[in-house]
């Protein structure tokens, strides 16, 4: 499932976070710029999508569910 795959990517990137309970990942600075860049490149590779710079706003990355929606949107559009 898409959600599990994204969760797995995040767990590899940040083993210290429990993605089921984390919120405001960007707004609180839990994910820093280097996490974001790694995450985007992992998501692009894993789902063959192209996340653009305009997608990098807190609404799209603050929670696991927001990330799932972002990837789903791209899978439909790309």
């Amino acid at each position: 499932m898409l959600r599990d795959e994204i969760k797995e990517i995040m767990e590899e990137l940040r083993p210290d976070l429990d993605m089921e309970t984390e919120t405001d990942l960007i707004d609180r600075g839990t994910l820093d710029s280097f996490d974001i860049i790694s995450l985007v490149s992992e998501l692009n590779d894993a789902f063959d999508i192209h996340i653009s710079v305009e997608d990098l706003v807190p609404e799209n990355l603050n929670t696991l569910d927001a990330m799932v929606q972002l990837v789903e949107r791209h899978q439909q559009e790309d």
Partner: peptide
């Protein structure tokens, strides 16, 4: 601010 570097367009 640090957060800006997570949002390149901003």
């Amino acid at each position: 601010s640090t957060g800006l570097f997570s949002q390149p367009l901003e």
